[in-house]
């Protein structure tokens, strides 16, 4: 999945989890959890939502690959 597509999908999902998040201010390589003040429960909810929307299985061991938009984009592309 392209980073642009990933970015718009994540923005859509975050509207339910962290509506105050300003995703535009986050660089592709930045850790979303720090940049947007997401706690572990928010991040987990985001991963679950990503799975539901894309159908891609995301085992917990792979979570660190989803800490950045760039990582998500790559993961969802190959997953």
């Amino acid at each position: 999945m392209s980073t642009t597509a990933t970015r718009s999908l994540v923005a859509e999902l975050l509207a339910d989890i962290a509506p105050e998040a300003e995703l535009d201010s986050v660089a592709d390589g930045e850790d979303l959890r720090q940049a947007l003040d997401l706690d572990s429960m928010d991040f987990l909810n985001l991963v679950v939502a990503l799975h539901e929307r894309t159908g891609v299985d995301i085992p917990e061991a792979d979570y660190p690959r989803l800490f950045t938009l760039a990582g998500m984009s790559e993961y969802l592309g190959t997953g």
């Binding site: 509207a15 962290a18 509506p19 105050e20 003040d37 706690d39 928010d42 909810n45």
Partner: peptide
């Protein structure tokens, strides 16, 4: 969503409602 965002901005993710 507006209320959720309002609470999170004021309180931070650790305290705000989910």
């Amino acid at each position: 969503r507006a209320l959720l965002g309002h609470a999170r901005k004021r309180l931070g993710a650790a305290v705000a409602p989910k």
